[in-house]
Design a protein around this nucleic acid. Structure first.
Length: 206
DNA sequence: CTCCAGGTTT
DNA sequence: AAACCAGGAG
């Protein structure tokens, strides 16, 4: 069937083309959450230059509160949007410390209630930190599914769920989808010529 | 749906 | 100059 073939080719591509980022070797829910917040509307390459230092310094939300917004701003400066980000991270850390004892909750309803955490970052925490089989739908994976299956917003999630069922590891498939969308099925200038899914894609161009 | 908010890419 | 970036809040 179509789904199995797509997943197979995707994972095969990913084995030799996957991107390596520091936050991908982290399993702490807080450090995964921190990466998610930093990556919002910001290039992964930019974040990867700052993340190791931040992750080492702010090992838990308590460290964020200990440092304070002003010190946080200095550390976030190279990323841009440092004022907004510092404020958001402090607010996030305050809620985590006051309501969850400095831990990151595991229920999606709780995660989405956290300031600065929406459906996507909640899914990232659930999948990459807690190992749940949930799709991580962002700009990239949404574009990929949309082109691949020729569907629009409401059905993107359904298709994604179907693909997930064909994968042994939801983590691997989510990362594969993300990397594939970023490197091959790009927003500008998609590389349809060398796309391993070309024969399976509804948007195949001549 | 609009705004956010700044650096990078094309 | 414009589009884009691992979205979320109002």
């Amino acid at each position: 069937m179509w789904e199995r073939e797509v997943v197979g080719r995707l994972l095969e591509w990913w084995r030799s083309n996957r991107r390596v980022f520091p936050w991908r070797s982290v399993r702490s829910p807080w450090l995964v959450l921190l990466a998610g917040v930093l990556l919002r509307k910001t290039g992964a390459k930019a974040v990867s230059q700052v993340y190791p230092k931040l992750a080492a310094k702010y090992r838990s939300p308590v460290e964020v509160l200990r440092a304070g917004a002003k010190e946080l701003e200095r550390d976030l400066k190279p990323l841009g949007m440092y004022r907004r980000r510092a404020k958001e991270l402090v607010e996030l850390a305050e809620v985590l410390c006051s309501m969850y004892g400095g831990r990151v909750p595991r229920a999606r309803e709780e995660l989405v209630r956290l300031p600065g955490v929406g459906d996507y970052i909640a899914s990232v925490v659930l999948c990459y930190a807690y190992g749940e089989a949930t799709p991580t739908i962002d700009t990239n994976t949404r574009r990929l599914i949309s082109r691949l299956a020729g569907v629009d917003e409401p059905q993107v999630r359904e298709v994604y769920e179907r693909l997930l069922k064909e994968a042994k590891s939801s983590r691997e498939l989510n990362l594969a989808m993300l990397d594939f969308a970023a490197l091959v099925c790009r927003a500008r200038g998609p590389r349809c010529g060398s796309c391993p899914l070309a024969g399976l894609c509804s948007a195949r161009l001549p």
